[in-house]
Simulated scan of single mutants.
Amino acid sequence: MPELPEVEVSRMGITPHVVGQTVSRIVVRNPQLRWPVPAEIRQIEGQVIRRVSRRAKYLLLETDIGYAIVHLGMSGNLRVLPADMPPQKHDHVDLVLASGEVLRYNDPRRFGAWLWQQPADAMHQVLGKLGPEPLDAAFSAEYLVEKAKGKRTAIKQLIMDNQVVVGVGNIYANESLFSAGIHPKRAAGQVSRQRLEKLVAEIKAVLAFAIEQGGTTLKDFKQADGKPGYFAQELLVYGKAGQPCPRCDKPLSEVKIGQRATVYCSDCQK
């Protein structure tokens, strides 16, 4: 599943092609994605895309009258192609641009979404209860200490809770906890302030480096130009159960936390 770095890389990739462009038309080949594509989204036709922003793992294509909210789901991707390029299987939505290019959404599993939000309306429900962005100053050691206080929840589950902080998906939670030396099953309220400070710093560093590397390609993710992300080559523990720990050489362990595969070193993470 594309996580925050992959979505941010997609945002950066499509921005030069779509910002300032008029949407000639929108083509919805399959209106039934994770949620039905709303008919109101056709209001984007004739509008100029002023900005492409990101909130958590949602991309916002902003115009003067509202914005399309795009989620890549588990297997979705956005590609910028010539407008006369024939659609392929699973190409569900096209934004045809006046430039002669098309922003094309492909999603084999159809767990992604295209939604519409008008500025005068209340914030869309998918954006309403999200925590701070992990790379923003609002996500600080002081903030995480307060959120962790008294919690028996595993620290890994806490940092993957989108109401606490957005975008720390499974890959990056594994990597950040290893870098911070914190056992993923440790109760959040039992992690010291000093170690939470380290964890916040590692989350920011891991995510920033993943964005720099173009994201992580494991199965489905590709950048907007079709190239894979290269952070997979930098992974220290994720997907490496049984292999030697990169620090102490002891075999890495694996456990399920919240139904998600969690890899850690029982010696280096306490």
Results as ranks from 00 to 15, higher is better:
139 F>H: 02
140 S>A: 12
140 S>I: 10
141 A>Y: 12
141 A>T: 13
141 A>D: 11
142 E>R: 15
142 E>M: 10
142 E>L: 13
142 E>Q: 15
143 Y>P: 12
143 Y>C: 13
144 L>C: 11
144 L>Y: 11
145 V>T: 15
146 E>S: 15
148 A>W: 07
148 A>I: 08
149 K>Y: 13
149 K>G: 07
150 G>C: 13
150 G>L: 13
151 K>G: 10
151 K>P: 06
152 R>C: 09
152 R>T: 14
153 T>C: 11
155 I>D: 04
156 K>N: 10
157 Q>S: 14
158 L>Y: 01
158 L>T: 00
159 I>P: 03
160 M>A: 01
162 N>L: 05
163 Q>V: 09
163 Q>I: 04
164 V>A: 07
164 V>K: 02
166 V>S: 01
166 V>D: 03
166 V>R: 01
167 G>T: 00
168 V>S: 02
168 V>T: 02
168 V>M: 00
169 G>A: 09
169 G>Y: 08
169 G>I: 06
170 N>C: 11
170 N>P: 05
171 I>V: 05
171 I>G: 02
171 I>D: 03
172 Y>Q: 01
172 Y>V: 00
172 Y>A: 01
172 Y>K: 00
173 A>E: 08
174 N>R: 06
175 E>A: 09
176 S>M: 04
176 S>A: 13
177 L>N: 10
178 F>G: 10
179 S>E: 06
179 S>H: 08
179 S>K: 10
